[in-house]
């Protein structure tokens, strides 16, 4: 009697584990399938509209109605915008990350406060940055422009960049920092000559990650960068961007215009994939070359 009961219990234990293992495999598969579905559906819709003209011409006759032309304005605009924002963010992020990990190495409280604030900033949705950026723009009497877009996106990617640089710099052994100090280096020399060299691949990964976020985000530039058919020639002109090129042109009833949206989606996806793969390559190299 007792034995039978035990066998039953064992059977149910096994069955429960089996059911959950199947569910786990299903969940994992769902995630892989979702990614494939996204990439394949974008490619199927977009690749047929990709052509040499598409990526080398600006739209003709207005981006919302004109049937001719391509998406060069958005490609170049996006590169300008994210390039500028990434550069500006770097100017703030790298010093700050070094400050946290070398200058304030011993002051846990300061570092934790910075981390807390970065976490807060990092959590704020990009639409809030966008709305804030626009309000500020109106307040300062500026118009929608490449510059306003760059500034808004910079604010939005700084926490992302500092946080990932912080992760990299955290792993620098204290001994290395102390060794540099004991050779008589100043803090900034230690930072920029010793630590930077050690961490460059990791920092490049952080920069690429931030660039990827900058180029992909639509909500922060929606009100600040404007949209135009032309490639901007100065910081005060509005600019088109790839995400908005998708967003605006997809809403058009004209199929040719929609095709431009799908083509933009493909270009954007490819850029993001390249960033993702190359940052992976960098971080692998980083793990190999790091002195432990």
């Amino acid at each position: 009697m007792k034995r039978k009961f035990n066998l039953n219990r064992k059977f149910f234990k096994k069955l429960e584990e089996l059911i959950f293992r199947v569910l786990m495999i299903i969940s994992t598969t769902i995630i892989i399938v979702a990614l494939l579905a996204i990439i394949i559906s974008i490619l199927i819709k977009g690749v047929p509209s990709l052509s040499w003209e598409m990526i080398t011409q600006t739209p003709k006759g207005g981006y919302y109605f004109g049937k001719e032309g391509g998406i060069l304005n958005a490609i170049i605009g996006s590169l300008y915008l994210s390039g500028g924002a990434t550069f500006l963010a770097l100017v703030v992020s790298l010093p700050l990350a070094l400050y946290m990990n070398i200058h304030k190495m011993k002051e846990k409280l300061v570092v934790n406060i910075i981390r807390l604030f970065l976490d807060i900033l990092w959590g704020i949705p990009s639409i809030v940055y966008g709305a804030f950026g626009f309000a500020l723009m109106v307040f300062l009497g500026l118009r929608t422009s490449l510059l306003a877009g760059i500034l808004t996106v910079t604010l939005f990617i700084i926490p992302i960049m500092v946080r990932s640089m912080d992760e990299v710099l955290k792993t620098v052994p204290r001994g290395l920092i102390e060794a540099s100090f004991s050779l008589g280096s100043t803090r900034s020399e230690t930072s920029f000559r010793v630590i930077l060299r050690q961490c460059i691949p990791g920092l490049i990964t952080a920069i690429l990650l931030a660039f990827g976020r900058a180029i992909g985000d639509a909500a922060a530039v929606l009100f600040t960068a404007g949209y135009t058919d032309y490639i901007p020639t100065s910081l005060s002109q509005p600019t088109a961007t790839l995400p908005l090129s998708v967003f605006f042109q997809l809403g058009s009833p004209i199929p040719e215009v929609q095709n431009r949206a799908y083509a933009s989606a493909v270009v954007l996806t490819v850029i993001v994939l390249i960033i993702s793969i190359s940052s992976r390559a960098f971080s692998m190299k980083y793990q190999k070359n790091r002195i432990k």
């Binding site: 994992t28 995630i31 892989i32 979702a34 990614l35 579905a37 996204i38 559906s41 974008i42 819709k45 990650l209 990827g212 976020r213 180029i215 992909g216 985000d217 639509a218 909500a219 995400p243 908005l244 998708v246 967003f247 997809l250 949206a261 799908y262 989606a265 954007l268 996806t269 993001v272 994939l273 960033i275 993702s276 793969i277 992976r280």
Partner: peptide
Amino acid sequence: IMQPVIDILAGIPSVIYGVW
């Protein structure tokens, strides 16, 4: 397989998710 899958999924822009 899963590490790059998660990374790429995290990097795909919002607007692409919208199109999908």
